[in-house]
């Protein structure tokens, strides 16, 4: 018979923890963490690198490079670091790639589960707060070096503006008003954004400074991947507005970079 006891729990993470803890081993298992530590010298997880978000006049842009590194080697050239969550929000992740992707997936399912069972969407603020819990639940792994840090952005339909939330390793949640970047090249990207950002920036200008910030991050940080014109691999860019989440087509991103290179 179907177990109907969980009725009233719109929390998917809780249901997994209670009934299917085996599905959460990557996020919450001391065994896995201590094994990862003892194997540290020979075992290097894939690491994701620079992701950022920029608020512009009618929404927010979220972007990330495509490279994952394994120590000093390129682990993966086409990894995705930005994931749409619901119609009006997206998550970007930096840190150990496996747990990062797992957290993004779990978070997306969680928000959708809430929406379907409750019949209304979880508010942007509610989503941001829930993500705190997920980050905190990963603390054990973070202490062993398998850190997962998300950046969360969305369009707030009640306040009519884009919003950005950043997190620390213990689940602290902080809102950023204009822009933010995290990951190994995050600091370099932030420097560019700091110099180029203006309040009420237009969509086109915002796209340009996002492309430039990722370019600078790739230029300064060996772990961040730049645009690859030969393999045609470009950073992923998403806009989130009143109309919802939309991915910027690869051809448009390529144009942004060709134009940026011509100005160098």
């Amino acid at each position: 018979m179907l177990d109907l006891d969980d009725y009233g729990t719109s929390n998917f993470f809780q249901i997994l923890k209670r009934h299917h803890p085996e599905l959460l081993t990557t996020l919450d298992s001391p065994d896995f963490a201590s094994n990862a530590r003892t194997a540290e010298s020979s075992f290097l997880p894939y690491e994701g690198t620079t992701v950022l978000a920029v608020v512009y006049d009618t929404g927010v842009i979220m972007a990330g490079d495509r490279q994952a590194t394994e120590g000093y080697q390129v682990g993966e050239r086409r990894i995705q670091k930005v994931y749409p969550v619901d119609r009006y929000s997206a998550i970007a992740v930096a840190g150990a790639a496996g747990p990062c992707i797992e957290m993004a997936k779990l978070f997306q399912v969680e928000v959708e589960f809430y929406e379907k069972t409750e019949g209304v969407s979880l508010s942007l603020e509610g989503q941001a707060n829930f993500l705190s819990h997920l980050v905190r639940s990963n603390l054990e792994l973070a202490m062993q070096g398998l850190i997962v840090l998300p950046l969360f952005a969305g369009y707030d339909l009640k306040r009519h503006r884009g919003r950005i939330f950043k997190y620390d390793a213990v689940g602290g949640r902080y809102e950023e008003g204009d822009y933010y970047a995290i990951g190994s090249g995050g600091k370099d990207a932030r420097t560019t954004l700091k110099k180029r950002y203006t309040p009420e920036i237009t969509r086109q200008d915002a796209l340009e400074i996002v492309a430039e910030a990722l370019w600078d991050a790739a230029d300064e940080d060996i772990a961040t991947g730049g645009p690859d014109l030969i393999r045609k691999i470009f950073p992923t860019l998403y806009t989130i507005t009143e109309e919802g989440v939309a991915e910027i087509p690869e051809t448009t991103v390529e144009e942004l970079y060709r134009e940026l290179i011509s100005r160098l």
């Binding site: 179907l2 177990d3 109907l4 969980d6 249901i15 599905l23 997936k105 779990l106």
Partner: peptide, 17 residues
């Protein structure tokens, strides 16, 4: 209603697994 919610839950668990 109880079956609807249980259906969503079981589907999400299966899809996640």
């Amino acid at each position: 209603e109880a079956l609807r919610v249980a259906g969503i839950r079981e589907s999400e668990i299966k899809g996640f697994r």
